[in-house]
Write a protein that binds this DNA or RNA. Structure first.
Lengths: 142, 142
DNA sequence: ATTCTTATTGAAACATTTTTTCAATAAGGA
DNA sequence: TCCTTATTGAAAAAATGTTTCAATAAGAAT
């Protein structure tokens, strides 16, 4: 674990709440909302305060260790983000979120948009929704 | 206006609050959160209740007349949606949202993801962020 | 190990956003 | 104009997020 280092280098400290939130996110296959993280912590006898969850998420996002994803409905959750640029595909059945990477293909799209709109594109949000292999199987079994 | 018709065909009614929300969205160049819509209404002597704003937005979204967009930070607003499939590009300076359409180009990307992840892709969320022509100009002028 | 500095926590109060309930109202077909 | 019922608004409740501040504990220094 070099989260320790990463924090200390900036004068920040690795505390219990931060460890707990990281652990929970590490073992969650799906985006978790702050409330969900809090409840998970409570359930695993790792009581931390809800306030700390919020604060920790802000911090981890700042450090690019965690990424916010948007549900279909608008409410958002957080997932662990591996370094680099990614997007997520989210299962509409079970919520599982899987990363996918490197879409050079999108560059072309962006250029067209720039030309069309005159905007200077700076960043983007791309998420796919669908059904994961497992949930597809379950669907056909019924 | 054939919103009247569209509603009546389903046994729904065109009411004052619904008209007000539609009008506000029609003359807003940027995504508006429910609260913002409410305040705009109050400011223009068109008092309607906040509850109705929520309810109307749900309805309009249901009817695909309005679309939810996600801010960079996670909070969302609503914009008018022209029929068909679109995405939005949002100015990080002034908030202006512009639609762009028809990315057949994305189909290829999707196929690759399907192959890679085994997911059955069903829907997607794509938003670009950048600076609109006006805000670019203002930036260089300083 | 122990001390010291200060980043961080948690509790509580507060603020904001969203949802529910239900009697009163008004849209629009008859 | 009447009648049915979809819709509204007020109020209360629930859920979500933020602020404040004294107490705690991380980790560098001694």
């Amino acid at each position: 674990m070099d989260l320790q280092l990463k924090l200390n280098q900036q004068g920040l400290r690795l505390t219990r709440p931060r460890r707990v939130v990281m652990n929970i996110l590490q073992s969650a296959p799906m985006p978790l909302a702050p409330q969900a993280i809090f409840k998970t912590a409570v359930n695993s006898q790792e009581e931390i305060s809800l306030v700390s969850v919020y604060r920790t998420l802000d911090l981890l996002e700042e450090l690019s260790l965690v990424r916010k994803v948007h549900g279909h409905d608008g409410c958002h959750g957080y997932v662990l983000a591996s370094p680099g640029h990614h997007h997520h595909i989210i299962c509409q059945q079970c919520g599982r979120a899987v990363e996918f990477t490197g879409i050079g293909d999108l560059a072309d799209v962006f250029e067209r948009i720039v030309a069309e709109t005159g905007f200077d594109v700076d960043d983007h949000l791309l998420q796919l929704y669908g059904f994961c292999p497992q949930c597809q199987k379950e669907k056909t079994e019924k």
